[in-house]
Amino acid sequence: MIGLELLLLIFLVFCAIATVLCKRLVSAIIIFMAYSAVMSLIWFLLQSPDLAITEAAVGAGMTSLLFFLTLQRINQLKGLEQDEDNTKQ
């Protein structure tokens, strides 16, 4: 059990560093989604199912969706199509 917990925790740190260092904003947000999903797993291991449900719906769903919609609006202001690279401007 400790092995699984350690694996998830190290994955968490790895995800956090990758989110920060990633050049493309879209990829960074997708990695942040993975981070939230793993976080909800960890909360399930910590015997808090309430938190796990909320984090899965809110962190992986709502927050990333808001980030994506903001990026879409910004790309629209730039006059680009939606899925183009955001940083190479």
Binding site: D50, I53, T54, A57, G61, M62, L65
Partner: peptide, 17 residues
């Protein structure tokens, strides 16, 4: 059971979206 207003509300909002 596990859950409540905050978690269920978030799920319902995601479903609406």
């Amino acid at each position: 059971s596990p859950g409540g207003g905050f978690s269920g509300g978030a799920i319902l909002g995601a479903a609406l979206i």
